Simulated scan of single mutants.
Amino acid sequence: MTSPGTLLSAWNLRPQKKMGQNFLSDPSTAEMIIARSGIDSMDTLLEVGAGLGALTVPAARASKKVYAVEKDQRLIDLLKTELLVYNVSNTVLINSDILRLDLRKLVEGGTEKIIVIGNLPYNISSMLLVRLIENRDIISRAVLMFQKEMAKRIYAGPNCKDYSRLSVMVQYCADIKKIATVKAPLFFPKPKVDSEVIELTFKTEPQYKAYDEQLFFRVIKAAFSKRRKTLKNSLSGNILNIDAKKSFSLLNQAGIDPVRRAESLTAPEFVKLGNQYWTQLHTDKHR
């Protein structure tokens, strides 16, 4: 593998900071990530941010097919050349913004689910995770590299400063496994922090199922919107359109102390709260 610095220089290119471009420069790390991911020759992959092809090439060699998405138009011809150099023929390059790409078109007519892989820029990590959660019926697993601070937000538990809306959403619908830590010097340009590779295996059915997931996610968003306040106060406002009195009643009916804070609730407790809100809305509607 040609070093990212050398490759970019040869093509008269520079990393774009606004795109969060930090290219993996160690081929053994890329091989290790793919090996630990358990990808095999029957799998179809969707790679987010193909970059210079560091993950694309070993991923293609291990799988049946790769849809490699890259937003930066400047890198497409470079990527095509790299795939030719390494004799990779089972990869479809897609020059698109992953946040706007219709993921379902990739699996039209097929019965298998895809596996998502990628080294994610920090600025799209949260939005992409939400998209994957919303489309998880066509995704079996995701093996993603995050900056360490973002990774902590995904697997943090209750009563931890990193516990967030994202923590609850992911833990509600996926099993989380740490795959590897990748040190900052293994990227070009070198980022300020290390990265972590996490595997998310989406559950066929959550253990505690929300009656209405979009409503459930709104409840989580409302609870964490004012995380320093008690749940009674954080739930009341524009997101749920309820006042403090209704918020107090909702929490009591869900068996949750109204003076607790969002960061103290487990994912199942949030499901219970969301389902109680759903019940309350439908009860009020039929009065």
Rank of each mutant, 00 (worst) to 15 (best):
E134M: 12
R136F: 14
R136V: 14
A142R: 12
L144P: 08
M145Y: 15
M145N: 06
F146P: 00
A151W: 15
I154L: 10
Y155G: 00
G157Q: 09
G157V: 13
G157E: 07
G157N: 07
N159G: 00
C160M: 14
K161C: 04
D162V: 00
Y163H: 08
Y163P: 01
S164M: 06
S164I: 05
R165I: 00
L166W: 15
L166S: 03
S167L: 10
S167H: 09
S167F: 15
M169F: 14
V170I: 14
Q171M: 08
C173A: 10
C173Q: 12
A174N: 11
A174M: 12
D175Y: 07
I176Q: 02
K178M: 05
K178T: 06
I179F: 12
I179D: 03
I179V: 13
I179E: 04
V182K: 09
V182E: 05
A184Y: 12
A184S: 13
P185T: 07
L186Y: 14
F187C: 07
P189D: 03
P191V: 08
P191S: 07
K192W: 07
K192F: 11
K192N: 07
K192G: 04
V193I: 13
S195P: 03
S195N: 12
I198Y: 12
L200N: 05
L200S: 05
F202Y: 13
K203A: 05
E205K: 15
E205N: 10
P206D: 00
Q207W: 02
Y208K: 13
Y208M: 04
K209C: 01
A210L: 11
Y211V: 06
D212M: 03
Q214H: 12
Q214E: 11
L215G: 09
I220H: 01
I220M: 06
K221M: 10
A222D: 03
A223K: 12
F224M: 11
F224I: 13
S225Q: 11
R227W: 01
R228G: 00
K229G: 05
L231A: 11
K232Q: 14
K232C: 08
K232E: 10
K232V: 13
N233V: 15
S236V: 13
G237W: 11
N238V: 07
N238G: 10
L240N: 07
I242W: 15
I242A: 11
D243V: 06
D243N: 15
K245L: 13
K245H: 10
S247E: 07
L251I: 04
L251C: 05
N252G: 03
N252R: 15
A254I: 13
